[in-house]
Design a binder for these strands. Structure first.
Lengths: 360, 360
DNA sequence: TTGTAGGCGTTATCAG
DNA sequence: CTGATAACGCCTACAA
């Protein structure tokens, strides 16, 4: 078959000429290159590669061959232009170094890359404005966003959600999709645990002012406290950090509570450190508990009793939901609550007897 | 000035018509819209906005006004096409949940966004292939990459670096830029500390097989051990995780060393946990130390003695260097070593007396 | 200083 | 089933 051979030779020749050209611009082949190599029209290459099956098997094979001979990759940027879809998602978090977000990041990353999407994570560290700015900067280049520990107002979130699909994590805003933990059951479980240990006077260290979930938690605690007839006071807002927890010790002690529930583990840890510094023994004089079960919670001594959240799942599901609405799914219903579970460790214990109670 | 007023009215009118159009496509204005609004040519808008100053002050002002009236943002994708620059950098790490990378991520993120760049972080969890795949997938859409805890071979790295600018963190490869810690001084300091405590027999828990830095550390330990005349044995490779550390306990004990140096804090923590489980008291019977000073190291009890690395700086500098080479800087010299410092805490103590030594 | 025109890599619409 | 051809939003010579 001289004809085929001829074609083969030709292909090889072209290939050589091409590889030279490619090397010059960094090895990035375009559909034109592979069209030339395969002897077809660029548009055919595009079709063959982006919607396999809708094309003659023969040509498709030829094109495929050429494609991975040049080891071709679509240029996502070029692709995004006509389609308007960048295949990129933004994950907005307030503080990357907060262990809580690790799980979320990982889950989101996995789900995203499993779907062939790229995840860019935006940290806002600073409050409000910085976050809004970061979002605006990213908006044009993403198809949608997952917002995790956002400090934005509801209005602002709604505004953003009006422009691109948004999924919230740990926050509910009307008409915006969100993945939420089963707040109530976790709180109930924790309170039951403390009650069982004899605590009748509990203090809740609230999170930052803008924390929706902190409010919800306290809400449920209030309900439960009424039902169980126990004393409950909220202290806050506090920074959701170790220092935030440390700073709250004085007020916790002043409140004469026997047990403290912190908005998150970071704060709980800070509180325990401050307690240790002040000679208050945990859980002997004060029981401490937190939320999240972050790395470090079981390392500290005594190990922290905490309510574990399914962070990885949260990230995963947020991305999955986002992708779904991106795919035109109509069912805007938020996904089911993520289950939550109490992890009892050493930082909570039976209520101190009056004679050896905190201070006098 | 009826003229100006007329122009203003016109502008307003157009603006209304435009905003309608914009809303329809998600609020994204283009330079065409603002050109129309300002009554100039799109190319003028492009110039005015991308290279301020090279244009008449009057038109520029007019354009600026129009631009933020429509609150315009460049479409990065569209921009990337003609210029070939996406203003996006990739940060490649093996495991996001490894606390070591937090610092790096944060530093890199800061430096990147400070320069107006977007950082996409790629996790490879799985070994080699997955990482290579992730990189290939990202390559077309980034201007350069920072590779942090890569498991790739030198060859592969060189190959990648040949296609796009690369900066390595904690790894040196010929002709590839890298930011490295001052390995030697950290090791020396640590060894001096242990020697001072009376330890003469030390074991090093190596990191994963592909860890360049683990090898370098051991190299320096070897040198020092010869100089100081102390016993040193390397155990490994090990997974750079808590479990990796746990799994190594038996061999550490078998080695009859009085002090263990782990490749990183995660492993050190695992080792301590296993020791506690086995009734080996730290530092009474065994001194333990690590590297990195991650979150959790000072939480655990006893708190971990460790060599702190400047992770945030590493991330920051990597991006800065990358940006510099992107900007055509010729000086390929790697940046100066990041200083390192020994943090002495409770997990290292004086060498046990023979009579209360480990095991028998 | 500003407008004109062509191109960046891909998709999508229309013919053929 | 496949080939032209016009977008997509922006940049950049080149011309005016």
């Amino acid at each position: 078959m001289p004809d085929e051979e001829g074609a083969a030779n030709l292909a090889v020749a072209k290939s050589e000429e091409l590889t030279a050209k490619l090397r010059r611009r960094g090895g990035a082949a375009t559909i034109y290159d592979i069209a030339e190599l395969a002897g077809v029209n660029p548009s055919t290459v595009s079709r063959a590669l982006s919607k396999p099956g809708r094309i003659s098997a023969a040509t498709e094979a030829k094109i495929r061959a050429a494609a991975d001979q040049l080891n071709f990759r679509f240029n996502p940027m070029a692709r995004a232009l006509p389609t308007g879809r960048s295949h990129t998602l933004a994950l907005v978090v307030a503080d990357i170094t907060n262990p809580v977000v690790f799980g979320i990041v990982r889950g989101a990353e996995q789900a995203a890359s499993a779907a062939g999407y790229t995840l860019v994570i935006a940290e806002s560290q600073e409050s409000g404005e910085a976050e809004a700015e970061a979002i605006e900067r990213l908006m044009p280049s993403v198809d949608g966003l997952v917002m995790a520990t956002t400090r934005l107002s509801d209005e602002r979130i709604v505004d953003i959600a009006g422009r691109k699909p948004v999924v919230l994590i740990n926050r509910a805003v009307d008409s915006v999709r969100g993945v939420l933990p089963d707040i109530e059951s976790g709180v109930i479980e924790l309170l039951a645990h403390l009650t069982e240990l004899g605590h009748r006077s509990i203090v809740y260290l609230a999170g930052p002012e803008t924390s929706w979930i902190s409010d919800r938690r306290f809400e449920h605690m209030l309900e439960a406290s009424e039902r169980l007839g126990l004393g409950l006071v909220e202290i806050g807002p506090n920074a959701p950090t170790i220092d935030g927890g440390r700073a709250a010790l004085r007020r916790v002690i002043a409140a004469r509570a026997t047990a403290a529930i912190a908005f998150n583990d970071l704060m709980a840890i800070g509180l325990m450190q401050a307690a240790a510094d002040a000679g208050v023994v945990v859980p002997g004089q004060l029981s401490v508990s937190g939320f999240d079960d972050i790395f470090g919670s079981e390392l500290i001594s005594p190990p922290l009793t905490t309510v574990r959240a399914q962070l990885v799942e949260a990230g995963e599901r947020a991305v999955t939901d986002l992708l779904a609405t991106l795919a035109g799914e109509t069912d805007k219903s938020s996904s089911p609550l993520l289950t939550t579970s109490l992890i009892v460790r050493g930082s909570t214990g039976i209520v101190p007897q009056p004679d050896n109670a905190t201070a006098r």
